[in-house]
Amino acid sequence: MTKELAIETTNLRKSYKGRTVVDGISLDIERGATFGILGPNGAGKTTTVEMIGGLRKPDSGAVSVLGLHPIRDRSRLRQVLGIQLQSALLHDALTAKELVDLYRSFYPNPRSTKETLGLVHLNEQRNTKFQKLSGGQQQRLSVALALVGRPEIVILDEITTGLDPTARRRIWATLESLRDEGVTVLMVSHAMDEVERLCDRVALLKDGRVLAEDTPAGITQMAEATNLEEAFVSLTGTEIFEGEAA
């Protein structure tokens, strides 16, 4: 008996101006799982999660998220899917509290503003304007806004890139509490320690294809490596550079 799937993609393809970015990606992600997408730059990670989130239209292939079509059923999916985008800024003259108040008004049953800011430890900065927050605080607020609507599925793209160790650990704790609530988390990451610690399963992407998909331990074992980072390097043939995605 297989578990219920939250996300299913079948043979997804996408190219930009003749360059193939996603080249036939099929993934099954179980409900309640924390699923990591890893890969070197240009592997098609962000494009893949954006197609799952209905922000980009695949050239071919199918996506089903909780039984919904991300583009056709867009407005239904938006109720239950929280997305944190890699590069999006927010209204930067508004304070953290004002931004949470704004985003929570979009959802029928949102978390309270206090709870939302508390999830990412920003209650003390609630009256600070977005533009005055540090990079890490902006990143955490952005994660909080993806969670404010009590989503059943969260997509997080590079949430801890450029964060200091304390800030990273805080976000990890937040993600672990989401898992306890049964939320399905799909995360794109460059940080192997993060993926190793948080993810139930990982898909390793390169050149728009899935190179391997397994538990972090399974992938490490498959590559005959001692940890995920070594496995990544040996499977993709790429070195990992600190902050390369920043």
Binding site: A6, V65, L66, G67, S75, R76, R78, V80, F106, P108
Partner: peptide
């Protein structure tokens, strides 16, 4: 296939 979730309804702000 993922199961269709009939409890999800579209609701505009």
């Amino acid at each position: 296939m993922t199961t269709t979730q009939s409890h999800i309804t579209a609701r505009r702000p």
